[in-house]
Design a protein around this nucleic acid. Structure first.
Lengths: 144, 144
DNA sequence: CTCATCTCAGGTATACTGAGATGT
DNA sequence: CACATCTCAGTAAACCTGAGATGA
């Protein structure tokens, strides 16, 4: 294939390669969360609320990359596990906010090092020497 | 945050940003496949077999990023739709290969332009001016 | 016999859709 | 009244796991 030629192989498409990278990355994170009995999405829910405070269901769904209806069931489970609780938004009572319960706060703090180790592993294993470039490109994409 | 400081925000982690990019990309592809009644994984199955020839179940599962047990059911459905068929591998009769049926060949060919348009859209919308850099980094990751 | 490959079955969690309830 | 937000219910598909069948 000459210079400037575009590959048309599926396994050399950026869209496929990102799906593959994501699969590898989530498998690794999933493994690290196993001892806590957490799924990747639950991890994101806890970390997001700890960082940004109580979140409306809609915004939280967008941030953790799931559908609103799916988030409703996830939060149901996490409420029953006493990790989070729902509360009304006084400014707009259509909204339902989700906040961390004490157990959720403690768990989320302990997840910081899991997150750090995971990110470091991704940098070393998948993108050695290219993590900064990757991050720059992805951050430029951030607000499409 | 100073120069050289690492962000510890979840939404600035490469692992999260890749998950988010993947979500956006697959949503777009999913939309483009709607008129054909195809799921993203079915698209990948057809394209992979067209490019690389009949594939063993195990290898195909790896390439399309699903579990072997899941692929079995997917192929069941696609067989009943006359898109693919199973055949024995004479060299190793433990293996079951999957090949394109005539309808699958025709469909896969028509998917080429969908794939091209999709990839072009990703390049323009998500990574303007950075598609080549992104691809280079991802290809280096390819065979971890 | 050991290992590899694939299929199957049961249980759990998610995606999707549209409908319904509540509030702006 | 139109619209936004969330929840709920039904269906489909995916994951996970371990067990089973077949063959190298």
């Amino acid at each position: 294939m000459g210079i400037g030629m575009l590959s048309h192989r599926t396994d050399e498409r950026v869209s496929y390669l990102i799906a593959r990278a994501n699969r590898i990355i989530e498998d690794d994170l999933s493994l690290r969360l196993q001892s806590d009995g957490l799924a990747v999405e639950q991890f994101r829910i806890l970390r997001t609320i700890e960082q940004d405070g109580p979140q409306a269901m809609g915004e939280l769904a967008t941030k953790v990359l799931v559908e609103p209806a799916t988030l409703t069931k996830m939060i149901d489970r996490m409420v029953s596990e006493a990790l989070v609780f729902r509360l009304a938004d006084p400014k707009d009572r259509r909204k339902v906010k989700v906040a961390l319960a004490p157990a959720g706060v403690a768990l989320s703090k302990s997840l910081r090092e899991v997150a750090d180790a995971h990110e470091a592993h991704v940098a070393e294993t998948l993108f050695p020497g290219a993590m900064e470039a990757m991050k720059r490109i992805l951050l430029e994409m951030k607000d499409r």
